[in-house]
Design a protein around this nucleic acid. Sequence first.
DNA 1: AAATAATGCATACGCTCCGTATGTCAATGA
DNA 2: TCATTGACATACGGAGCGTATGCATTATTT
Lengths: 195, 195
Amino acid sequence: MRKPRQEMIAETRGKLIAAGRRAFGTIGYAEASMDDFTGEAGLTRGALYHHFGDKRGLLQAVIMEIDAEMTERLNEVSAAASTRWQGFVDECSAYIEMALEPEIQRIMFRDGPAVLGDISQWQNTPGCIAALSRSLDRLKADGEIIDIDTETAARLINGASSHMALWIANAENPEAVSKRAVAGFKAMLGSLRRQ
Amino acid sequence: MRKPRQEMIAETRGKLIAAGRRAFGTIGYAEASMDDFTGEAGLTRGALYHHFGDKRGLLQAVIMEIDAEMTERLNEVSAAASTRWQGFVDECSAYIEMALEPEIQRIMFRDGPAVLGDISQWQNTPGCIAALSRSLDRLKADGEIIDIDTETAARLINGASSHMALWIANAENPEAVSKRAVAGFKAMLGSLRRQ
DNA sequence: AAATAATGCATACGCTCCGTATGTCAATGA
DNA sequence: TCATTGACATACGGAGCGTATGCATTATTT
């Protein structure tokens, strides 16, 4: 056993993040009792305060983990497409689809911003927005899209898609609303394209 | 004194809504102690529970009040414009500007959705979205905009503008970011216009 | 290698806040 | 005028959070 110490620590951190993520993603941040979900992980609030300072610190760690996963997924999607433009459209669709997943919706689009403020700000541009920005930059360099500020466009898309996702997810008839939402969203994307 | 009773009741409700609105709009919903802000209004939590059921009920009442004010302001703006299209653009600009006001941003765009879920859903379409929808309907009837689902468009605009507002408000340099944001936003609006 | 320091985490305590149950007083209506 | 309802306050119990403290194990010093 050379260094089981660091492993144990990392394991504890991982357990806390996993437990918090599960609780935040299901019952929500405000309803999640620290005693409860640390207990489920076989730990106590002591460990949480030691590693993350407070409940918000844990939420931040959870968000960073999810953001990294989303970025990875977006990169995969855009890399798999045959053309740049198609890759971008696919990326945006994937973004909406991710925003439909209850855990992502709750943590990244509801509780996160409410508790920590604008998530896209307290970090130096989070991965999932940066990924959209990069795709737009490439399209712009290729002359495929109109002359627009790419970060602004990325944030417009971010805002629009997350709201579309909320609308769909909370609709009485998600299927029908989804058709309308995606159609409108693609129309908006199309307007970015040159010609 | 014909009916001082109803007046007293209405006054109490008004005081509670005003006190809650002030507290929610400044320190935020979660940090607002019911004992504190009811006390500041010369009342107790007893009155709050009696009139609104619980803290969330009061938030809902506050939101409905603010929504009504926003609707009124939007209607005024669009009515004051010389053309339909200009009225619509002005309306959207006004929407962003309102979203920059700390109280509106905090209550309508942060705490509200986090606590009550998608605000644009639990009511049968709130006034401020309905107002945008109506403007779009008129423009569509006039043949001024492309063939698009107006409610979807209104929600896209709603999402985009609220995110732009968040971006601006939390930026280190709001002035500069505001220029970029508004320019990009108007470009997006322009793409709705026929031709 | 022994002693000391530091770290990871648990336990304990007090405080604030919330929800409900209960009480009280004024206004209404017969 | 008396009973009743409704508006609001008070009282109580419980949950959750933050901090202070304790303990054990590992790291560091000599």
